[in-house]
Write a protein that binds this DNA or RNA. Structure first.
Lengths: 229, 229, 229, 229
DNA sequence: GCCTAACCGAGACGGTACGTCACGTCTTTTA
DNA sequence: TAAAAGACGTGACGTACCGTCTCGGTTAGGC
């Protein structure tokens, strides 16, 4: 799964977008490659890959500060050689990036019944993510750490944040078509009006107080009031 | 100015709020202290303190990733012994925290003319801070770094974020009294409705596109529309 | 070769005496051990070990005072990481101890023709060692250094001094049997009567003047005169 | 008493021999000097000087390895500022040198009755010194330390060893005149025949066993037997 | 059923940075 | 001006990781 230059993992077919994943698959050509230049020698163990990522998750969940999660320590925890890690990822950054993807919750399922309901569902998924962060301490840490590592941050944005933003904009577009909100607004701005307050609570002040269950509804309704046609 | 346990900076007398700033001198009370419990031995050089902080700023502005800003390197850059740094700060975290405070822009001056104008001024100062971050690469990095270090993050919140939040809430309170917004709203929530969108732009997506000059006004007006009595 | 607790050098079969060397070998059992608990991971490089010891010797021969031969400097000189040194020796003391053994000259070859000749040969080897010390400045320094470090001094005595003392006593014993000296003497004392004067010259006053070639003969004959039956 | 360039101890007048002792005052002449070129400002406290040297002695007697007797530690122990030490000695070496002189036992009193008795008295003083060393742990350590510091070693030899060697040679010279030993011998060599064995016991093997009381007599008689006319 | 290439664990290797300590110099107040 | 205090630049200490590199020992195909 990593984008490491040394990566030679055979090929695991998959979705359609993910930038990094792209490097290792891609349809018929890959199948061809698989047949032609099938990797020789002992194939890499998927169990090892899981053990490594699980090791990082375990460490962070035990409360180890992310800064102290060294490759060396991950190797010890996972009972794995350092080289085995470097064979898959080029360094901490890349590894953490994959760890992050591994724990990232699924996209919320939208009913499409109304824009308001979908927006609340979106914000609710953010709220739950915030709660998960707080309880597991994982995302909250990895997230913060990432920002100091621009490369990883870019990947994260492209693979996690942007898709959700597009999803959110789509919901708003339907809201305009349905007449749920005026049509003379900048949807990008409107999107931020909804997600911004939620983020402030779940990321910037995650321990302010329990993220109350009703918060998404409150935000959506407060903002919507100013957007009605 | 650091909170290092070894800190023996003379003046301890202080005003009423700022925990860290407190440790520094400031007026007649301090002179008194100087006479009374004058520190013995050679006093610490303020020039050295400035040189160290300026060294960090210089490194970051040259584009050095914050992760590579080691104490050792700071010492070399500032032409200072490592021990001199550790005398003042207990480690990277504490140092960066003070660096951050050193570059933190001043609180915005509020006219008090109307709640709307004050809110726009507040958001405008956030926008400028975002721009500064992006151009200097400093705050953006230090900020991210801090979040992965809970201790520093806590200090930063207490000394920088919270005061501004209180300022912001005060503005809103006056808005309720003036009748600029309804009086049946949760001011904490309303505050997030204003600052959230601005933060999303300036912190989470600082390079999305230039932070347009009109953004604060747009946000304030959009949100206000739903809050009028 | 070091006795460092962290030492895990596999096992190098060898001679019969050296106390420290003993710790790492020992005949058939070792061969067994090699098969059974073959050291895992990359084996330590003997070339590196030599480079380190040679580095120390080179420094001392250049005239660097032993007090300035820091581990850090040895590492630089030998082109080696500090950890590589600490992996083998627990500190300066242990390292110097092995350096000393490395430069310690071989035991003299005794003809056994007569006690007098053997005694002269023993003293001659001490004289040459004294010369070597003076010209290379090495033993003279390491020797002095050692004495201030009881642990190393004890090892040195056990592995270098004692064996020679036993050798010397054996020579004297044969002298008694041959009738070359009286049989009512304390051999320990007699031994000191021979070696003491030589040591005073070669160790205590190494720069007094060249150690003349005839000195051993003079000492042996002068002392022997009082010991004849 | 130190030879430190910064030394400003008043009294420069001096006796006739001891180079180091010279620097200190000694009677009326000094008083005169004090009046004439009275040092300006606060005079140095002799109590401080004693406190420093006593501090070193105390540390060593407590069993602190000489290598850990840092200037910093001496200053703490003696309750004295570092600068106060550096004002008097240029560094560890010089300080230790004076410490050594402070604990060096007095020259033995020779009766002059016979060469044999005087030689035994000389060796007896060496024996006692050896015992003292062992019990106090001081000389034994300082002695060893010194040898690794050529400058101090030179001073020690000049002020302590040489005078005794001259004394010893003088005794032998009288022995030749008295007819107690032959007159065709190299006195330097003969001297070593007596002192060498004693040194081997008291310095090289100080803990071999108690230095028996009769040892000096045994050595002298054994060696003398071969030197009689 | 071998052969062989790649994987795997372990850990040595040359480095860099850590945080502490002592060096010898300096700068301050106090006496 | 000495003395105590302690800040200062320097640099060694011993430890921890970095990312690379051997080692002996597995696993898989492909012959």
């Amino acid at each position: 799964m990593p984008a490491h230059p040394a990566s030679r993992t055979p090929a695991r077919i998959q979705g359609e977008s993910g930038e990094a994943k792209v490097k290792r698959k891609g349809g018929a050509l890959v199948d061809l490659a698989e047949q032609q230049e099938q990797r020789r020698g002992r194939p890499r163990s998927e169990a090892v890959e899981r053990a490594i990522i699980d090791g990082v998750v375990a460490l962070v969940e035990e409360g180890v500060p992310l800064a102290e999660v060294s490759i060396e320590r991950v190797a010890r925890t996972a009972g794995v050689g350092k080289a085995t890690i470097y064979r898959r990822w080029s360094g901490r950054e890349e590894l953490f990036c994959d760890v992050l993807r591994a724990v990232e919750p699924e996209d919320p399922q939208l009913t499409g019944a109304s824009m308001r309901e979908d927006l609340i569902a979106l914000l609710e998924s953010m709220r739950l993510r915030g709660l998960a962060n707080r309880s597991s301490a994982l995302l909250h840490n990895v997230y913060a750490q990432m920002k100091s590592q621009p490369k990883v941050w870019a990947v994260y944005r492209a693979t996690v944040i942007e898709p959700r933003r597009r999803l959110s904009l789509e919901v708003l577009r339907r809201g305009v078509e349905n007449g749920e909100i005026r049509d003379d607004v900048d949807l990008e701005l409107v999107n931020d009006l909804f997600t911004g307050p939620m983020l402030v609570r779940s990321v910037m002040r995650p321990d302010d107080a329990e993220l109350e269950a009703g918060l998404p509804e409150q935000i959506v309704d407060s903002v919507l009031r100013g957007l009605r046609p």
